[in-house]
Amino acid sequence: MRISLIPYGPLVGVLGEPPLDLELEATDAQTLLAELHQRFPALEPWTQRIACACGDSLLGPHSAIHDGDEIALIPPVSGG
């Protein structure tokens, strides 16, 4: 299915400016991240360090991903 990814912070340098529209097989957040790491080896420094959100909701590992979703890719946060 087609997913629109929105990378933030240093992930923009790896994945490019958002939005990034991809055809993915993943159906939940965990498998989406696994698929991304496979397609983009440059994400390696962020292994286990990216969270996913859809709108104002943080996604758990098994949160479902739906066709057409906009998924925010959230690296470590550094506000303040």
Binding site: Y8, G9, P10, G13, A29, Q30, L33, Q48, R49, I50, A51, C52, A53, L58, L59, G60, P61, S63, A72, I74, P75, P76, V77, S78, G79, G80
Partner: peptide, 26 residues
């Protein structure tokens, strides 16, 4: 909070500061 800080240096360099990983979807 998903906020990201990019620092610009007087030598022209820039970088995102490392931060804390959100505890979800790992």
């Amino acid at each position: 909070v998903p906020i990201f800080k990019q620092e610009f240096y007087t030598d022209g360099d820039a970088r995102y500061l490392d931060g804390q990983t959100l505890d979800a979807a790992l």
